[in-house]
């Protein structure tokens, strides 16, 4: 509806353009929400018994890790977790993309492998973790296997659909020009499937992020997931909450400023296929 509420009627004081942009895009509401949430949080933690165990106040949480940062442990944990995520994702991409392309090139092959990939995808990486722990113990290899397994399937699936969505005419056109199979894959199939590859990568890395956190908790390898889990064990609830907030923030930053732009860019620039 075209109405605007009266509170937005033009006032005598004309605020700056930037401020208006900020409020128009919901900045004010977000600010209000954050302040409100912090307030509710502090109130709750000030009335419940034993807040340091159940819900430490925001400031307590904020200052809880001074010591950790000071000792350099905290950056270490974040670094470890990110390292696992990045290496695991690279492994996932490195295996998933060629795999998806190979499967997608031939209709018979892709029809053949689709169901079994579906089956393995529905066993989550976390569920196979106990098996792998039996095989390799609580080692770094175990964590990486879980991450790889988790990231692999969404990536391979998307690449497969991407390859299959490239219109046949492009391939045929290349054929009539006498291009080799390698040429066709490099010049038509890969660029054509790129938007899907980007989507798959974002999805796969998102899954991998959860897998890293859970994997660290379960195998006891040092990192953010391990940290919040041990903090809970040793009754440092303030550190648990801080760790959770960090986990959320890191993911949002990663998604907003790395993965999403890459995805949007590839779709716009390379998209043979309009979506």
């Amino acid at each position: 509806m075209a109405t605007t509420s009266p509170s937005l009627a033009p006032s005598r004081v004309v605020p700056s353009r930037r401020w208006r942009r900020f409020t128009k895009e919901g900045g004010a509401e977000i600010l209000l929400l954050i302040v409100g949430l912090l307030l509710v949080w502090s109130i709750i933690s000030s009335i419940i018994p034993n807040p340091s165990r159940y819900l430490p106040a925001p400031l307590v949480v904020f200052f809880s890790s001074g010591e950790l940062i000071w000792k350099g442990l905290f950056p270490n944990y974040v670094g470890q977790t990110l390292y696992r995520l990045i290496l695991g994702s690279i492994l996932g991409l490195g295996v998933g993309i060629p795999f998806g392309v190979l499967l997608g090139l031939n209709r018979t092959v892709s029809d053949m492998f689709y169901p079994i990939m579906n089956f393995f995808q529905s066993i989550s990486g976390i569920a196979i973790l106990p098996i792998i722990v039996v095989w390799w113990g609580n080692s770094e290899k175990t964590v990486f296997t879980v991450i790889l397994y988790t990231a692999l399937f969404p990536i391979a699936f998307n690449v497969l659909s991407g390859v299959r969505s490239v219109p046949r005419i492009y391939v045929n056109a290349m054929r009539t020009l006498g291009a080799s199979n390698y040429c066709i894959v490099r010049d038509v199939i890969l660029p054509g499937a790129l938007p899907y590859i980007a989507t798959g990568a974002r999805l796969g890395i998102g899954f991998a992020w959860r897998a890293v956190i859970a994997g660290e908790m379960l195998t006891g390898r040092r990192g953010l997931g391990w940290w919040i889990f041990t903090a809970q064990d040793t009754d440092h609830t303030d550190q648990v909450i801080l760790g959770m907030l960090m986990i959320g923030c890191i993911w949002i930053l990663l998604d907003r400023y790395a993965l999403r732009p890459i995805e949007a860019d590839t779709i716009q620039r390379w998209g043979l296929v309009q979506r």
Binding site: P10, R17, R20, R21
Partner: peptide
């Protein structure tokens, strides 16, 4: 009149 939220001048 429509208030304009960006420029503050109404239409």
């Amino acid at each position: 009149h429509y208030p304009d939220e960006y420029t503050g001048e109404d239409v």
